[in-house]
Amino acid sequence: MYLLFLLAMLTATASYTTPGKLIEALGKREIQHSIGLSLLTCTVTALLSLLLAVPVGYLLARARFTGKHWLEAALDIPIVLPPMVMGLCLLILFQTRFGQFIERIVPFTYTVFGVVLAQFTIGAAFAVRTMRHTFDHLLSRPEDVAMTLGCTRAQAVWRVTLPAARRGMFAAASVAWARSLGEFGPILVFAGATRMKTEVLPTTVWLELSVGNLEAAVAVSLLMVLCAMAVLAAVKWLGEEV
């Protein structure tokens, strides 16, 4: 029933517009900029998330230390907090003296860097979860054997564990990418919704809806649905569950 409901929803959205109007909407300069910026920021966010998720996921899966449960709970904060609240927290952080100091080096508030940071703050938490899940399912014994054969721990991880975790790494990056593509609240609050500057695809949907241009909003929504389905298909094809 639920699946039918989802299919009905997507079919209704797809049949709302015609291919001609869809192409016309996607041809608009602002929307093309938004597509380009979304693809760029999501890809950068996915790579940054992976850089964080691999060591943190490994640590959570393999190491035993005091306060581990608290650390795990803290890393889930971006997943459980309302996205809009995350954006507000980011905005307030960058009004503090520490934030202002960072801003003097790299300006984040209402910039493209802010878009990436807002996406990263939430996407990385999902990537960490995926990598932890991946390392939980990989036995540590081959790593031990590699060490008896002459590897250091770092070499054993690099040569034995990471190649075995490559599907999980792809899944983690994909989850972060897909999650970032749909991120709206934190970006709106922290990076703004300036056309041709910090406008990403969800912002476009919101901007087009706010001026009553439903055709363009539907066209961009369908594009996002296609992207999300492509990521899901790629992850499933590689045999990893998101």
């Binding site: 990989l138 036995l139 014994r141 081959p142 031990d144 054997v145 590699a146 060490m147 008896t148 054969l149 002459g150 590897c151 250091t152 034995v160 190649p163 075995a164």
Partner: peptide, 17 residues
């Protein structure tokens, strides 16, 4: 471990996947 001059065969072989 790597400097002890040992050969180690674990229970399930622990192959490198």
């Amino acid at each position: 471990p790597g400097e002890r001059g040992i050969g180690y065969v674990p229970q399930d072989g622990a192959m490198f996947p």
